[in-house]
Nucleic acid binder design. Structure first.
Length: 457
DNA sequence: CTAGGGTTAG
């Protein structure tokens, strides 16, 4: 008996090692060999395997491990459920996460702090900070010892749901109670402050990070750099990039993406090219986001042959083009004046299952408008299930440019009813247009609606 | 096991 127990432990160490290196076939082979030699896999074996499948393969494959373990007569435990929960939450299958949590309770398994952590994260992702907060209070009430990550998840969730002030309040409160922030915590807050356009406070937080004895890492640098680009401080951003490199963070794909994308967006293609080449020379493996950045660069250069070739390369390399990929192509074709090509790609995109790609539809609408086909743009608009302020702004602005102010006005009222913001410049274009063409009553009515919408917001 | 990157209107 002793021998068998020991062998299972050895088996688990072996499985863990293979799983860590993503060698799942090897792990499976070891299990089969073990069973042949009389070594019985236990709950730890299956949990290790399940976790690896969930992270590296798919959630479905993780579920099939659960099935296998049940067949082997082993009951799932809290760790099994936590792995599934985190997999579902990571893949944004949030209602599934909630079901799993319920199922765990039904099965009589007591959730631990990690279960609650993941549940909180799930509620934040669902845009339900109140529910997340309830879970947080639950952890404290049940006298479960919160993990430092519990606090970070709270702070991050509050930031992402635009409760930056509450996040800061929680942060300060926790500090008074002896919570020692980690680098992650500072990065979360700096990101939140940057996103809320509160640069002064972001700078202070960066200083505090240093005073706490931490060195900024690649994530800190990327966050601050993106913020500089957003506020058009290009030189400062590039300086941060070189500082980051001088600190030894030379091989960071995220940072390179940020820089290249910003350079492309501002038309500095030469520099973007150089940066991209440097990235590849450094041996950074391109992932889908990096490929999309490169693709956008090709489109802006008008190199559509290269762009199509790159799409094939992506798929041949085992990655799947996503909604970003298709949007970039459609927008690129529109901006290059190839409306027919863009429409073809839009059809293709719909055919392969991207029916809800709002941004791609917006690009097509804008492209059609700019090519003088506003009525076709309106048809496309009518066929869309969801619209946002980009949709309305494009249409309204281009209707004004075509002198169709009353149509623009009607659409803008719809936009306001829909609760979407519209750019000041576009509002003015409609109002001025109505007045100059003699529709002063209509203009007055629209102005009133704009004011009401502003109050109700 | 929580933090950073890639797409659109003016």
């Amino acid at each position: 008996m002793m021998v068998s127990g020991l062998s299972t432990r050895l088996l688990n160490i072996c499985i863990a090692s293979y799983c860590k290196s993503r060698l799942l076939e090897r792990a499976e082979a070891v299990i089969i060999d073990g069973i042949r030699l009389g070594v019985i896999p236990d709950v730890v074996t299956y949990n290790t395997l399940l976790n690896a499948y969930s992270r590296f393969v798919s959630l479905d494959s993780a579920y099939s491990v659960v099935h296998r373990m049940k067949e082997a007569g082993i009951s799932p435990d809290v760790i099994t459920y936590n792995s599934l929960l985190s997999g579902a939450t990571r893949n944004c299958l949030l209602s599934q996460s909630l079901d799993l949590f319920e199922e765990m309770l039904q099965a009589g398994i007591h959730p631990n702090v990690w279960s609650y952590n993941i549940l909180m994260h799930c509620f934040f992702k669902l845009g339900k900070p109140d529910e997340a907060n309830r879970v947080f209070q639950d952890i404290l009430l049940r006298n479960l010892t919160p993990h430092p990550a519990t606090f970070n998840i709270m702070i991050n969730g509050l930031c992402k749901n635009e409760y930056i002030d509450n996040a800061l309040m929680l942060f300060r409160n926790l500090q008074r109670h002896g919570f020692v922030p980690r680098l992650v915590t500072y990065n979360i807050l700096i990101h939140g402050l940057c996103k809320a356009r509160r640069l002064g406070q972001a700078r202070k937080m960066l200083k505090e990070l240093g005073e706490s004895g931490y060195e900024p890492n690649a994530i800190t640098y990327t966050t601050v750099m993106k913020c500089c680009f957003r506020f058009k401080q290009y030189d400062e951003a590039l300086e941060i990039m070189s500082e980051m490199k001088s600190k030894g963070y030379t091989f960071d794909g995220f940072a390179n993406c940020t820089v290249v994308a910003a350079l492309v967006k501002t038309g500095r293609i030469e520099e973007a090219n150089a940066c991209m080449e440097q990235t590849m020379r450094n041996g950074i493996e391109l992932d889908l986001a990096a490929y999309n950045t490169l693709l956008n660069m090709y489109c802006r250069e008008g190199k559509f042959e290269a762009a199509y070739k790159l799409m094939d390369e992506i798929e041949n390399g085992g990655l799947q083009c996503d909604k970003y990929t298709h949007t970039i192509i459609i927008d690129g074709l529109c901006k290059a004046g190839n409306i027919i090509g863009a429409e073809q790609h839009l059809q293709y995109m719909k055919m392969i299952g991207f029916r809800e790609n709002l941004v791609a539809f917006n690009c097509m609408i804008d492209g059609l408008c700019k090519a003088g086909q506003i009525d076709r743009a309106m048809d496309l608009y009518k066929s869309m299930e969801t619209k946002d302020s980009f949709t309305y702004t494009s249409l309204v602005h281009n209707l004004c440019k075509a002198g169709r102010f009353r149509c623009a006005s009607k659409l803008m009222m719809k936009c306001l009813r829909d609760g979407k913001k519209i750019l000041k410049a576009t509002q003015r274009a409609v109002l001025d247009g109505l007045r100059s063409t003699g529709y002063t009553d209509e203009a007055r009515k629209l102005r009133w609606k704009i004011q009401v919408a502003r109050i109700l917001r």
